[in-house]
Design a protein around this nucleic acid. Sequence first.
DNA 1: ACATCATAGTTGACGCTGCCTACATTCGAG
DNA 2: CTCGAATGTAGGCAGCGTCAACTATGATGT
Lengths: 196, 196
Amino acid sequence: MAPRYHHGDLRAALLDGALEMLRERGVEALSLRELAREIGVSHAAPSRHFKDKRALLDALALKGFQRLSEVMAEAIGRRGAFSTRFRATAAAYVDFAVKDAALLDVMYTNKHAPDVPAELLEAGMRLGEVVLGMIVDGQRAGKVRSGDPTRVSMLILTSLHGFASLRASGMLPAEGADKALDALVSDLARAIRPEA
Amino acid sequence: MAPRYHHGDLRAALLDGALEMLRERGVEALSLRELAREIGVSHAAPSRHFKDKRALLDALALKGFQRLSEVMAEAIGRRGAFSTRFRATAAAYVDFAVKDAALLDVMYTNKHAPDVPAELLEAGMRLGEVVLGMIVDGQRAGKVRSGDPTRVSMLILTSLHGFASLRASGMLPAEGADKALDALVSDLARAIRPEA
DNA sequence: ACATCATAGTTGACGCTGCCTACATTCGAG
DNA sequence: CTCGAATGTAGGCAGCGTCAACTATGATGT
């Protein structure tokens, strides 16, 4: 394919390339210029699509939240026992965190800036809502104790995010991680099940 | 004080200055050259004490883990009811995360590199041991159900870290955060208390 | 079919960064 | 008092993000 003046979809190419660099060498090594070089455009071309490096990272984070929400929603939306779907949802989060550790960082790191784009915050909230939905679902099925579902979901969300985050950071060793997650999930299930 | 050729304790000055910059403008804005400028030393001087920018961040992370471990150990080591000390320990973690959000990031972000210094990993482990100690303590007092304490502490640690991390990232709004933490702590206490 | 014009790309420059090498000063041990 | 190690300085290098000025492309309205 002869190099054309107009790339066609540079924006998408940038996002794809950036994600790959993120995966392979971490956020520190992500350079707009190198990215442009690899795609085969000039070093200033990216600025037409992302005014800033930060803007690119934000877009990446947004896509990350969307993908994570999707896989978790898919897991909880399957058919089967609540406990099975619960476990699958937790595994989906942890999977994401391990495979895209650097992206997870970007998703949660960009936040404490004063100028966080609203869509990013919303995307994060929507992730919370997926977990909340799971709890409401479990309550309807009688598998989760009744009461304020947002409060119950807080317990689940924090623990899930904490496990995923610790796992992503290398704090929790890979070996035995599966068993540890199983144990955690069953402890959580126990913690939120209805009173006998 | 006249500027001397030898600073006296440049290493400590660098760590202090870096922490301040981290607090005020985040890790992205931390520059070795600016740091040196502020301290009043040449731009290459820091390299005598930290071979790398990464080395400086690692040292900062190490100090962070130590301080965090200390404040949490202090909180759980107080006298009083287990539930009170438990709550105080959780609050200590969250407090640290909110006040030093950027540092928390550095502590947990530097980890997925292949060349993480062993001391850093150890420091992280020691933090886990503080929580573990709390659980063992609670078990002895009959406030925590018996069984593998590391498993119980996993539930606490993940949830605490998750809450702190979400709080630091701005994902959990500041308003109502105290009540949310109270609710979480009491849910956790309920989850790990002995069977009736 | 063609002028027009916003869109999407290029080139070149600026200041900043981390890092390296070579050199200078100071301190402390013998 | 001397001499080596520790600590600091000076200068240079390549890479970075960003900006301004310029250029090619392709869609649109007549």
